[in-house]
Design a protein around this nucleic acid. Structure first.
Lengths: 167, 167
DNA sequence: CTGTATCCCAGCGGATACTG
DNA sequence: CAGTATCCGCTGGGATACAG
């Protein structure tokens, strides 16, 4: 069991286990991050999820607010539904015919921390101000992404360990 | 000032301010999320960042561990350096000629919560086990992404408010 | 070992036109 | 209003070949 400790000047994870090669990596079932990216790795997917968080439900709203072409929105929504992030639900306003609305599933809502992380990281860096910001209702303080462990500790980057899980 | 409250059955953000239209949105300086995606929205970018977190520094290591084609890795690394996520640093092993290593900058390390969020979201969902998992060193509990406000409160999704920031 | 230059293909995203 | 079909350009990523 190789143990590589690279902490120090440029702090990175401790790495336990031998996954230096792509082969070992692939054999281990790939990487969860890559699986995520195959679903939400496109601009259109995250923009539609964003608008769903903001409360958009109807096709027309989602298209207008994202600024995506209808054809792109259509295809992406279909895939988001297929991937289980959104649900396409029929509803009727009395007097008009049946319509559909797109709502986030639990799996879709689980993207909340990812969304906050993307928003926040995009705000820091360049000095650009303005745009939409996310705050804690009532408290009015901006939201920040954090990392914890399941035991409840805050985990700074230096205390992170990456290891090869048992099959 | 429009106020849209969509809490309830399918909980989403409260939305304060009128940014229902792409026009208002664009005028407000676009969206921080979209800016993030333009930098780290590609598979290759995040894979290289991942390997940098795992401690990879040399070009050859990064290529082998990501499995990316050299040409792709080369181009993407150059862009990551240009975008300020990585730094290309010369170093010499005595007796051989000068080489370069790629290390994350502060801005690159700031992707830590984003990385954890991507990893975690990819693990839930399908029943796939195995692969690399991130844990709290010493504690051994898996890492989870969280959302807080700058005042230190945990912020559940229902207490999130999206509002148009002043220019 | 650390790249770069070229060529190629697939997928994303847009424009246009058309349906229920 | 809520899409789908078709076509088309751009970029992401891989293969191959070459260079310091």
């Amino acid at each position: 069991m190789e143990r590589v400790d690279l902490q120090g000047e440029d702090t990175v994870f401790t790495r336990t286990g031998d996954f230096a090669d792509r082969d070992a990596f692939t054999a281990a079932g790939w990487c969860a991050m890559e699986r995520s990216l195959e679903v939400v790795g496109t601009r259109s997917a995250m923009m539609l999820v964003r608008e769903a968080f903001y409360g958009g439900r109807r096709f027309d709203d989602l298209v207008r607010r994202t600024g995506l072409a209808e054809t792109v929105a259509s295809k992406r929504l279909r895939q988001l539904v297929a991937d289980g992030l959104m649900e396409r639900r029929p509803y009727r306003v009395p007097g008009s015919r049946t319509r559909h609305e797109y709502v986030l599933t639990d799996r879709g809502r689980a993207l909340f921390p990812l969304f906050v992380a993307l928003m926040r990281w995009g705000q820091t860096g360049d000095g650009k101000k303005g745009g939409v910001e996310l705050v804690h209702a009532g408290c009015d303080a901006p939201l920040v992404p954090a990392v914890r462990c399941e035991a409840g500790h805050d985990v700074p980057i230096e205390e992170t360990e990456a290891r090869l899980a048992a099959r």
